[in-house]
Amino acid sequence: MKKKILIIGATSTIAHECARSFTSKYQCSFTLIARNQSELDKNKSDLLIRSKNANVKTIPLNSFDLRSIKSLNSKLTNPYDIYILAHGILIENDNLTMDKLSEANELNINSYANLIFLIYESMKKINKGHLVLFGSVAGDRGRQSNFWYGASKGYIHKVFQGIEHDIAIHNRNLNVSIVKPGPTLTKMTMHLSNAYKFSKVSDVAKEIVKEIDLKKRVIYSPGRWRWIMLIIILLPRFIFNKLKI
């Protein structure tokens, strides 16, 4: 089966691993979008060698720059089966500066929102496609260790809910999912002191792709994080406030 897949933030470890996982299931035609062209080229050859019948196109994008984002519009006229938005940076509350916070919010909230806006508008016109957003387990309940990052991911969750509602009310032929990876060993997290306990990215990506195929709404990967987060969300405040998590 053929699939046309657009990935923004294609050089992120999880996104690339998802792309590899898609090639093992489908004959894929990818459009990879990210800031760094040389990294994109590496990902392109990796996918082409791993899958003989894959097709890969790359587009460099500066997602901090509104004009660069708008210029993407002309390339969205052809419909894709799946649109994956995976770009973002991780910040920790420890040693956070205002400069770092503002840079992260610019990317994780502003630019992310602009890209969703752009893509969702084009999807509405074509009335076809599956939009996959990347949230995080950090966005489920604000916690002292990473609430600034968590808040930006919580924002994406609210956008996801809105789009889901919009699709239902207007009876659109569209799908939307939000992926919430649990702690995963990626280039973004490998320097953290407990990273060796994190899940393997290839396992996480395989599960994400499986769930995207099933058009699941909220995708926790590994799946156990659905239940862990449910407990954390439901913990009464007097207990939660005693836990240093």
């Binding site: 050859s45 990796d46 060698i49 990215v201």
Partner: peptide, 12 residues
């Protein structure tokens, strides 16, 4: 430095 994630195939 852990390099397990630098695992791309460059050419064949």
């Amino acid at each position: 430095k852990q390099n397990l994630l630098n695992n791309k195939i460059i050419a064949f």
